[in-house]
Amino acid sequence: MELLPEKQAIIHADLISAVFYLLSGWQEFYSDERDQHGRFPYAASVQHQYGFVAVPVVNYYFDVLKTAIEHVSGQPLRPRRWADGRAWAAFITHDIDNLYSAWKAPAKAALQRRDWLDFARRYWQHLTQKDAWDNLTEVQQTVAEYGAKSTFFFLPEHRKAANGTPNADYQYHRISKSVAALVTAGAEVGLHGSIGTSAHEAQLQRAIGQIPRLAHNAQGLRFHYLNWEPRITPLLVDELTFAYDSTLGFAEHFGFRNSYCLPFQPFIFQRGEVADFLEIPLNVMDATLHHPRYLQLAPEEILPALTPMLQEIERFGGVCTVLWHNENFDPANTRNGPREFRAIMEYLRSHNVAFVNGSDICRSFHHLSSGACKGPSQPETKSF
């Protein structure tokens, strides 16, 4: 970029096209690459090819435009501020897949060792004691210790998908009182769309109806296994008038799937326009950090690995979206468990982050009355 006299600037690159390519998900829409779960794989992305998954490139492009505009106009552009005037924000979320299965892996291991006494002990504990993953209140209280709010995404489907992929190990109607208690305590509740709902309107509509709190006001959404079919899902989510989605992150690596660290309205290629709902990108998931097919970071490696990405989000006043499953609040997990979660929360709090939930983010983007982040009872309007 050249800043010239007489308030002129020349940018020697087509930044607008580059921004559109990354932010719209062009690479996903026009690619047939999919993994075993039907997802666009990180290995096929430009972020992987050129090694910038943890760098919000679109924000850097916008920063170039900001510098040019300030030079030409002679006026500084003020950065966005979050709650209490803080520079950046964190969105703490939990996908609730399992509540009653903590006993299964150690019991299976006991069987494989032919340790009948240990197996009998674990099975008896399962029958007589609360499961270690039945911990929704403990999760909320842990998050609240840091002055933060929890957003819980619940799966209404407990049956396995047609391809054998598991959904919930619980039936939502049996835990509805526990969910109500979370809401009373200040938590936010959203839909965790089961396998298949990201591509089938009838299935997604039925899932909404199974969670009464969403039936008349479909607010937040994240799809199970981060399923997202770019040729179908954005249109589907928009037509069912969700306020926001928070699915778009790579399962295989932390960072920025659309190379942007702020919420945005996804582009719907079929219409040639942006959606009404807000996408709140997912930046870091517990399973990504230690999983046989993913990063396999040692506990002491997690925060140092994440820190450069967190610094980028802070630099641009973005939102750090964290997904930590309730099962990984189990003290028995010493790899990507409660200790590692607390280290991340300590970092966020010590860097003066604003802890927000999805509704807070919607309000901060001023879309509640102009399109995005509306509920289904509000009038249909567009926001560009």
Rank of each mutant, 00 (worst) to 15 (best):
R174P: 00
S369V: 02
Q219F: 01
A187G: 10
I232H: 09
Q205Y: 04
P331V: 12
R113F: 00
S198G: 04
G74V: 09
L297W: 08
G318R: 07
L23Q: 14
Q203W: 11
R363L: 13
F264N: 03
A102V: 00
F153Y: 15
F355R: 10
Q47K: 08
Y294T: 03
G337K: 09
Q270L: 10
I92Y: 03
Y21A: 09
A18G: 09
E279V: 05
S370P: 00
G190S: 05
F242N: 03
R34L: 07
N217G: 14
P79W: 05
A343S: 14
A305G: 06
T128A: 05
T247W: 06
T334C: 03
L289E: 04
L226S: 12
L117R: 13
P281S: 08
T197I: 05
K382H: 15
T307K: 14
S198V: 01
L99K: 07
L99E: 06
I195M: 06
G318D: 07
A251C: 13
P331R: 10
A161S: 15
A372Y: 12
Y244W: 15
F62Q: 14
I232E: 09
L368W: 03
P56A: 06
Q125D: 13
I211S: 02
K177R: 15
Q311W: 00
N336A: 13
Y123S: 05
D330T: 08
Q140A: 12
H216P: 00
V356W: 05
L278T: 09
I16S: 11
T288N: 11
G38M: 06
A199F: 01
P106T: 08
W228S: 02
H291E: 09
F365M: 14
Y244A: 04
H200C: 11
Y347L: 04
A18R: 13
A43P: 00
I280E: 06
V183G: 00
A107E: 03
E273S: 14
F153W: 06
I313L: 06
